[in-house]
């Protein structure tokens, strides 16, 4: 009972954080009364509390990733046109608040360590696919639109178990399946296959919450573009 009380109190205290995380992903202002997004975010935050342990590093970063993923899934389910975008604006109060809360020197170091571990893991994973950062840098699209298109394809693929399994087993992109799933252009996929593979590896695994949280993924409508 006490734990539950504490949990409620904790959530209540962090409502601001949840609101900011959700509105940042949705790119709009939300209201507690009307928007489903906030309740999804609340549930995600609660789940994050359950799943969290100290090995996962800073809780707020972990919670932010959890909220983001939950919201993106939610958007995908409820609308076919949901379109993910990268954001590079050094935006909003949210980040400032977050940094103010989370980053004192010690925590910064811890975060860096966590990230370094993740990166080491990622490099090991990538080397199984014979991918080096040199290759990835060379075949990473410079245009934002292209990157976002690849991101969307990667996100859809990473939520498709078949494809992820095939990739892990064969260490190659199953291009046919991806084409069937996304209806993308074959040449496009082949051109950006390295970048796509890297994104799928990062997005499909739960091992890289920090890397994922650093990527500023947002949800928008494709028609808006």
């Amino acid at each position: 009972m006490r734990l539950e009380k504490d949990r409620n109190l904790f959530i209540e205290e962090n409502k601001g954080f949840i609101y900011n995380a959700a509105s940042n992903v949705c790119k709009k202002r939300l209201s507690w009364e009307n928007d489903d997004e906030l309740s999804i975010a609340l549930i995600a935050f609660n789940n994050a509390c359950d799943k969290y342990n100290e090995s996962k590093g800073n809780f707020l970063v972990f919670a932010k990733v959890a909220i983001k993923n939950a919201l993106i899934d939610f958007f995908r389910k409820c609308s076919k046109n949901a379109y993910l975008t990268f954001s590079n604006e050094d935006n909003d109060e949210f980040n400032k608040i977050e940094t103010r809360i989370s980053i004192d020197e010690y925590e910064k170091e811890q975060e860096n360590k966590q990230r370094a571990e993740e990166i080491a893991m990622l490099i090991r994973e990538l080397s199984k696919y014979k991918l080096t950062f040199d290759d990835i840098v060379k075949s990473s699209p410079s245009h934002r639109d292209t990157r976002e298109n690849v991101l969307n394809i990667a996100y859809r693929c990473s939520s498709e178990k078949n494809i992820v399994e095939k990739i892990e087993r064969k260490k190659i992109l199953p291009i046919k399946e991806i084409l069937l799933l996304t209806g993308a252009n074959r040449k496009f996929i082949e051109k950006w296959r390295r970048y796509l593979l890297t994104l799928i590896i990062i997005l499909s695994s739960d091992n890289y919450p920090y890397i994922k949280s650093y990527l500023d993924i947002k949800v928008g409508e494709k028609d808006e573009k």
Binding site: I123, D134, S140, I211
Partner: peptide, 22 residues
């Protein structure tokens, strides 16, 4: 971006908007 790898006088970073840069 996040430094992913260091090679000589260059670093490979991943930026917020998902680009990999040297």
């Amino acid at each position: 971006g996040i430094v992913m790898k260091i090679k000589g006088k260059h670093a490979y970073v991943m930026t917020k908007d998902g680009a990999f840069e040297k």
